[in-house]
Write a protein that binds this DNA or RNA. Structure first.
Lengths: 146, 146
DNA sequence: ACTTTAGATGCGAATGATTCACAGTCAAGA
DNA sequence: TCTTGACTGTGAATCATTCGCATCTAAAGT
């Protein structure tokens, strides 16, 4: 059923690619590293090499199917392309929320234009402390255990 | 003269640290990698180990003296802390421009608040094509030579 | 269905940025 | 000046990511 998506992107519909796509779809709202994808496939007894995952994720990125992010620590995280949106990251628990604000997008276009740039994309990340009751329980960004 | 800055930050005023600070000040408007700093010091016949540069830059970051960025490729780039501002990056020549827009900052605070986040910092990068006549001459982000 | 072949894959080695370990050094307070 | 804890240089170690290459396989043609 997604084989067509891949063909449209000029990619052969191979099993590894379909499985990777499936993992991304099952985690639509997360941001996964190549390792994350790899582990999830392992857990599912899919035997796909890590190098393949890196290759495929890059191809997906080129094809516009996924977005690659480099948040705080510089390591790559991927998410399915789901239209423009920005991120809000809790510095305590690492939770990543998404949001969209039209007015902000518009202002970004204006500012780029004012500087003589033909805007092609942007990255906006807001960092702060969330108020979730389970905050501090996640470990994604934890550095020490005070 | 900057030894006081270092002491204030709780760091001993050592020669390597002063030299690194000096390089950052001489390149106030650039964004340097640890390697960049290293090369500049080498060119100046300063014999400072690369590991020291990484260590010192991290300490400067902790002390709030420098900001660490992870643009497109995930590698760390540093710049002297010079108050809040955002970045505009040319996808063709790699030029990085800085700008500041109060209204945008305000809207970011509002949005974070709306989501229940206590905003502590943010990252906004706009990517596009610049109109500089010498665009395409830089190589920072070049990938192929079409 | 069977062949062909360009493009994919898996494996392990290679790379590049960054960090670590540790022995030698130095800034700064007594 | 002496002492000491913090700092540094070196080279090795680590971690994410990419490469090289022999092997496979999707998909287009017979």
């Amino acid at each position: 059923m997604e084989t067509s998506d891949l063909r449209k992107a000029g990619l052969k519909a191979t099993l590894p690619r379909l499985k990777i796509l499936e993992v991304l779809q099952q985690n639509k709202h997360d941001h996964l590293s190549a390792e994350d994808v790899y582990r999830r496939l392992m857990d599912n007894d899919e035997d796909i090499g890590l190098a393949t995952i890196y290759r495929v994720l890059s191809q997906f990125e080129d094809a516009g199917l996924v977005i690659r992010h480099h948040f705080e620590d510089g390591h790559a995280l991927f998410e399915l392309e789901q239209g423009p949106h920005d991120h809000l990251i809790c510095v305590k628990c690492g939770k990543i929320e998404e949001f969209f604000d039209n007015e902000m997008q518009q202002r970004q276009r204006d500012l780029a234009q004012k500087s003589g740039f033909d805007l092609s994309k942007h990255t906006l990340v807001l960092y702060g402390e969330c108020q979730a009751s389970n905050c501090e329980n996640d470990t994604t960004l934890k550095k020490d255990s005070s």
